[in-house]
């Protein structure tokens, strides 16, 4: 298992490098000169501008610039936000826990919805329940997160007035009331993301279970006289989860996209809304750093999926 993990970690390194190359290429290819303003300023002679460029390494060959950029990124030296003048890594660290909490909670919700429904539908293929579940799954992942978010606000905040639609970091209450308020303001963002993700997952789970259910070992388990519920839970579901974990990891980029939108709608102070405000305020260091963090998160979740994979299917870790 340890060896397997080390191998997986080593495979993740080229991915991070590849993503960093793409990010850097986008930045390097982008038009625009950081000293554009100086060029139009008559008080600054061109030689000064040239010297400034040279001292900052802007005229170096591209691979030198890439390695300089990469080492400073890896050292955690991400520069300062143009807008708030505080180090970018502080800004992101402040906001990251909220994003992780919202995404984590919505993933748990998605799994809690998708696995029971998917398994139940697959054990009764083409029944009424299966057809309704399938249709609802289509509706679920055809509803874009920004529209579900607005619909929920319309229903629960405006018409029923049950839930607040703005997420606040500083809650006035303390103790149990604080927890209650926290839950109340998290319900809608988590539901929006969880339902979207869960709807896609239901179909994965259903087809994975359908693939497993007709295998011989399931028949054997039934023939031994094991009750149907135990066959389903212990023999079918565990093996059906193997492909589902892969698909879950493949879905992560889409989940982060959804998280950005959700954070923006409900004004959740996570890195997604940080990214949007940075784009609107032309805050390049923050945009770059948040994109890089999202890329690293995707890879991190892929690693977690690999660990789960090794646990679900021990054969893999011995290969």
């Amino acid at each position: 298992m340890t060896q397997y993990l080390i191998r997986r970690l080593l495979i993740a390194i080229p991915s991070i490098l590849g993503i960093s190359v793409i990010l850097f290429a986008v930045l390097a290819l982008a038009p625009g000169d950081p000293f554009e303003e100086l060029a139009t300023n008559p008080a600054i002679p061109p030689e000064v501008r040239q010297n400034l460029r040279a001292s900052l390494g802007l005229d170096d060959p591209i691979h030198v610039r890439y390695f300089a950029w990469l080492t400073s990124m890896l050292r955690g030296d991400w520069g300062f936000s143009f807008v708030s003048r505080i180090p970018v890594d502080d800004l992101i660290l402040q906001r990251l826990p909220t994003t992780i909490a919202v995404i984590g909670a919505s993933q748990v919700l998605a799994i809690c919805i998708a696995i029971p429904i998917g398994v139940f539908a697959a054990t009764r293929p083409y029944s009424i329940f299966d057809q309704i579940a399938n249709t609802l799954a289509f509706v679920g992942f055809s509803l874009p997160t920004f529209f579900t978010g607005l619909l929920l606000i319309l229903l629960f905040s405006i018409h029923l007035d049950w839930l607040p639609f703005v997420y606040r970091t500083q809650l006035d209450s303390t103790g149990w009331q604080w927890w209650w308020d926290q839950v109340r303001q998290s319900i809608m963002p988590v539901t929006v993301l969880g339902l979207f993700q869960g709807a896609a997952l239901v179909r994965f789970v259903r087809s994975a279970v359908l693939d497993v259910i007709r295998l011989d070992y399931v028949t054997t388990a039934r023939a031994k006289g094991i009750p149907e519920s135990a066959v389903t839970l212990r023999h079918i579901v565990r093996n059906a989860m193997i492909p589902v974990v892969t698909l879950l990891a493949l879905q992560m980029p889409a989940v982060f996209g959804g998280a950005i939108v959700t954070e923006q709608i409900f004004r959740v102070p996570g890195i997604g809304s940080l990214l949007i405000s940075a784009v609107l305020a032309n805050d390049t260091p923050v945009i770059m750093a948040v994109t890089f963090v999202f890329a690293c998160l995707v890879i991190l979740f892929n690693l977690i999926a690999d660990i789960l994979y090794g646990w679900l299917d021990p054969r893999i870790s011995y290969r």
């Binding site: 991915s15 993503i19 793409i22 990010l23 986008v26 930045l27 982008a30 038009p31 625009g32 992560m252 980029p253 889409a254 982060f256 996209g257 950005i260 939108v261 990214l275 949007i276 784009v279 032309n282 945009i287 770059m288 948040v290 994109t291 999202f294 890329a295 998160l297 995707v298 890879i299 892929n302």
Partner: peptide, 14 residues
């Protein structure tokens, strides 16, 4: 495995 929406935003912004 690229985070698509952030990259879309980055590219469009640049």
């Amino acid at each position: 495995s690229l985070p698509q929406l952030p990259l879309l935003l980055l590219i469009i912004y640049l």
